[in-house]
């Protein structure tokens, strides 16, 4: 083997090693501490009654340029005030965007007019299956936790006063 060939192989070897180290480190850095995020979200839930939590982990596959979204279905009952609060992992490049839909109609988002809200509340007028969609701006990667809680229930006459 010539010295030039040997130098060339060395370069390839070092480049590959650096590349693999980067991939491996990136892989570990992206692991979500879901339990800690949920604990924080429960702490920030307030005085409502816990109903359900949602684990959001959006990470790119090797072939993907962007992350997509994750969707959950929830049954919400009419005349009930619900709170959705979110907690983002500190290393998230972007804050999570949460959207609530009913039959493809966007009802609520925690990202309104360029402002991010850590929580939003929804006073439901119709019992049914709603969709909760989470994503990150620009298809960024991220880990977040969200909690759904029941704040209050109203009578039919109270609903008329809104």
């Amino acid at each position: 083997m010539s010295i030039e060939n040997s130098k060339g192989m060395k370069k390839i070897f070092i480049s590959l090693l650096v590349l693999f180290s980067m991939f491996s480190l990136a892989g570990y850095a992206q692991e979500c501490n879901s339990e800690a995020l949920l604990k924080q979200a429960l702490k920030e839930m307030g005085n409502g009654q816990y109903i359900k939590d949602f684990k959001v982990e959006l990470l790119k596959d090797k072939k993907d340029m962007k992350t997509g979204y994750v969707k959950f279905s929830v049954v919400l009952q009419s005349r009930s005030q619900y709170k959705f609060n979110v907690v983002d992992a500190p290393e998230n490049p972007e804050k999570v965007i949460m959207q609530l839909y009913f039959k493809d109609k966007l009802l609520v988002s925690n990202f309104e007019k360029g402002k991010h809200y850590k929580s939003c509340q929804f006073i439901c007028g119709k019992t049914g299956v709603y969709s909760l969609v989470f994503s990150y701006k620009g298809g960024a990667e991220g880990c977040s936790s969200a909690v759904l809680s029941l704040v209050k229930q109203f009578s039919e006459s109270e609903m008329k006063n809104f």
Binding site: M9, L17, F20, G27, Q30, E57
Partner: peptide, 25 residues
């Protein structure tokens, strides 16, 4: 050097794949 390269490919590849597996939900 070739042998080291192959070994590092296998080790690196394994580390990469295990990182990906850790990301799956």
């Amino acid at each position: 050097l070739k042998k080291i390269l192959y070994i590092s490919l296998i080790v690196g590849g394994t580390a990469f794949l295990s990182g990906c597996a850790g990301n799956s939900s």
